[in-house]
Structure formats: C-alpha cells, structure tokens
C-alpha cells in the first residue's frame, strides 16, 4: 500500500471513529422458507431459470450424457481430470461409450485460452450441492476443476446428486459451514444459463457465458 493510501486509510478510519456512536440493532428473527419436497421445488425453479434437467443414475449418466451431446452434434466436451466426474467420463469413453472427444482442462488458462474461448463446445463440472428455493447450483471450483469450465463453453453440464439439496442459501451456508471452513478462491452460485434483459427488458440467453445449462440429476440408490 502506498503512502497516499496509508494517509487515506488513517483519515477515513479517523473520521469514522470520531463520528457519534450509534447502537447496532439486534437482528430480528428471520425464518427462511423450507420445502417439504426440496427436489420438486428445485426442479420447478431451475426450469424457470431456463436450465434443462435430466434424471440419471450413478451408473448410466455417461451414456445419457453421450446421447444428449450427440443429439446436439457437439464437437467436443471439456472435462476436469482428477475429479470423480471427469475421470468417470474418461473411463466411460475408454469402455466404448460414444462420447465426443474429451478435452482435458489440464493446463493453466494461459496455455488453453484459445481453445477455451473459441473451440470448446461444452464443459462438465460437478456441484457442491444446490438450493431448492431458487433452483441454484453451488460450485466451488478447485485446482482440478477450474473456474472457467462453467463459464466459457457455450454449454455447461453440471452433475448434481439429489441428496445434496438445501432449502435455501442461508441453510447451505450454515449446514456446509462455509465461514468456519474458510472460503475457496472462488465460490459460485449458478441459476441457469447466462442471460440479459438490457434491451427492452427482453430476455436473451448466452450473452457472455453459456447459452445452455444442463443439470444431470443423479438419483439416489439407483
């Protein structure tokens, strides 16, 4: 921090501390909503957010994904090697599941930028759970599963386990212990594909990020 910034810091904090004290109110009670059927709420809201949901199982999802991608005629799929989902797809492809060519996000963005910005058709990530109230996915990108995987490709596919649903963001923050665990470099809430309504309040999808979001919902015990 520069000298000027240090002076500014001292002056700003000095003024704030010299101001008359004021009592901070106690927080009044607030009961965020809960849902008897979290999955139904999630489905309804995620679809309202323009996400496409496909019910899959722990064993059949690579095959289902292959069908979805081939029906769309996609040229390739970027995956995160070293993550359970990424490795499962590599294995499935080796076993003959007709997936499009898999592109690993295995180098830094500087090396992969051109492919990421111009060539990759789809990116696949896992999720850290989801929020029923708003139909929202929780993603905590990692060293293995980088941030841009869910952003630059025109199609984002997210794998969500059905037993990781939370009623609300408040519940997720509390139950997953975000503050205590320490926040990752980047944590994301994603509710549908990229969109804008800046032109005459008309909705248009894919303005900068993905045009489409597909959620593969892995059903329990199947």
């Amino acid at each position: 921090m520069s000298t000027a910034s240090n002076t500014a810091r001292a002056n700003i904090l000095g003024r704030l501390k010299a101001a008359p004290g004021r009592p901070g109110p106690d927080l009044p009670p607030w009961t965020p909503p809960t849902y008897a059927d979290k999955l139904a709420r999630f489905r309804q809201m995620a679809e309202a957010n323009h996400a496409e949901i496909h019910d899959v199982t722990a064993s059949n999802w690579p095959q289902r994904l292959a069908t979805l991608l081939n029906n769309r005629g996609l040229r390739n799929l970027m995956i995160a090697p070293g993550t359970p989902r990424g490795d499962a797809l590599v294995q499935a492809a080796a076993q003959g599941v007709p997936l499009p060519p898999l592109v690993p996000y295995d180098q830094s963005v500087e090396a992969l930028k051109d492919a990421l910005v111009h060539q990759v058709d789809a990116g696949l990530t896992g999720t850290r759970g989801a929020i029923a109230e708003t139909g929202t996915l929780i993603l905590w990108p990692t060293a293995q599963e980088p941030r841009l995987l869910s952003l630059l490709p025109p199609l984002h596919i997210a794998v969500l386990e059905e037993d990781t649903l939370h009623d609300t963001l408040a519940a997720a923050v509390r139950d997953q212990g975000w503050a205590a665990a320490g926040m990752p470099t980047n944590a994301l809430l994603i509710s549908g594909p990229s969109k804008t309504s800046d032109i005459e309040q008309t909705l248009a999808y894919g303005v900068h990020g993905p045009k489409e979001l597909i959620i593969l919902l892995v059903k329990k015990g199947e």
């Binding site: 809201m45 957010n49 109230e133 708003t134 139909g135 929202t136 963001l169 926040m183 990752p184 470099t185 980047n186 944590a187 994301l188 809430l189 994603i190 509710s191 549908g192 594909p193 990229s194 969109k195 990020g209």
Partner: peptide, 11 residues
C-alpha cells in the same frame, strides 16, 4: 429470486 451468477471472490 436470484441472479444467474453470484460470484464470491476470496483471493
């Protein structure tokens, strides 16, 4: 109910 992205940056 929520925006498409909530982007939380901690470093």
């Amino acid at each position: 109910p929520i925006t498409t992205y909530v982007n939380m940056i901690s470093g």
